[in-house]
């Protein structure tokens, strides 16, 4: 064997001595290792914040539940005004279908007659 080409006696003694006296784990290091282990367990056992659903994400985008409430109120008011308009506002339901109505802006007077009178 090539390993026997040199005297391994002293080296083997040193290896044996090293094996017989392995370095002790420093107590402070052991404590740090255990603390890490505890932290890893704590992190895993802590309830993980659930990924918010699409409704929650949408609400967040609009401005929280307060924003959603405002939006809902505005929508309800719009619908209400549309269906039962207060006095002074044209009734959209009544207007519907009247787009073909013609109005006589000159109240019967003839434009051609008016121009000729001016001559």
């Amino acid at each position: 064997m090539t390993e026997r080409e040199f005297d391994t006696g002293p080296l083997d003694d040193l290896f044996a001595a090293a094996r017989a006296a392995p370095p002790a784990l420093p107590p402070a290091l052991a404590a740090r290792m255990l603390a890490d282990a505890g932290r890893v367990l704590d992190e895993r056992q802590a309830p993980r914040p659930a990924m918010p659903g699409w409704r929650a994400q949408l609400a967040e985008a609009i401005g929280g539940w307060f924003g959603v409430g405002g939006l809902a109120a505005a929508c309800a008011a719009g619908l209400w005004i549309g269906l039962a308009p207060p006095a002074g506002l044209p009734d959209p339901v009544g207007l519907f279908g009247q787009s073909q109505t013609s109005y006589d802006l000159f109240q019967g007077s003839d434009l051609a007659l008016a121009l000729s009178e001016d001559g």
């Binding site: 392995p22 370095p23 784990l25 420093p26 052991a30 290792m33 367990l41």
Partner: peptide, 20 residues
């Protein structure tokens, strides 16, 4: 599975070898 005592035993067994 959450056994902290197991961590202490593993540290005692594997810690010295890792450090060594």
């Amino acid at each position: 599975s959450g056994d902290r005592q197991a961590a202490a035993q593993l540290t005692a067994r594997l810690g010295p070898r890792t450090f060594g």
